[in-house]
């Protein structure tokens, strides 16, 4: 009987353009947001429960560690949002060529970084 044939799929040996990494990051950030949404919904519930628990949560989120966690969560949201809009623009038939899609990927990363920095400044 014939053995199962091997495949070459060593991801460390395969070069991919930045567009591919931008797309993979979009999916990873989506997964991250789906998981973290449980904690976010819990925080929302706490904030709505009573005035006391709202203030308690507010105070809790003032801690530097919590601010960093908040920034990480928001970073995921920003990237997913910006890359999602890039996808919608591509669905309209733009940025589908080699260079234009590369440019779109770079722009989406830059916009995300600007949003993260702005949020960081606002948080601190």
């Amino acid at each position: 009987m014939q053995k199962k044939r091997p495949e070459h799929l060593d991801l460390t040996k395969i070069k991919m353009p930045i567009q591919a990494y931008a797309s993979i990051a979009h999916r990873v950030s989506g997964l991250f947001l789906a998981v973290i949404s449980v904690a976010v919904v819990y925080a929302l519930q706490l904030s709505l429960h009573s005035e006391k628990s709202f203030n308690c949560l507010k105070q809790y989120l003032q801690q530097p560690v919590m601010k960093i966690i908040l920034l990480i969560v928001l970073s995921g949201l920003f990237y997913h949002f910006v890359a999602g809009i890039k996808h919608l623009i591509m669905d309209l038939g733009f940025a589908e060529e080699k260079t234009s899609s590369k440019l779109a990927a770079i722009i989406s990363i830059i916009v995300t970084i600007v949003l993260i920095i702005a949020t960081g400044l606002w948080l601190w």
């Binding site: 567009q19 591919a20 797309s23 589908e96 590369k102």
Partner: peptide, 9 residues
């Protein structure tokens, strides 16, 4: 297809 453009590349 997720439009990552590996094919065009």
């Amino acid at each position: 297809c997720r439009g990552i453009v590996n094919c065009v590349n």
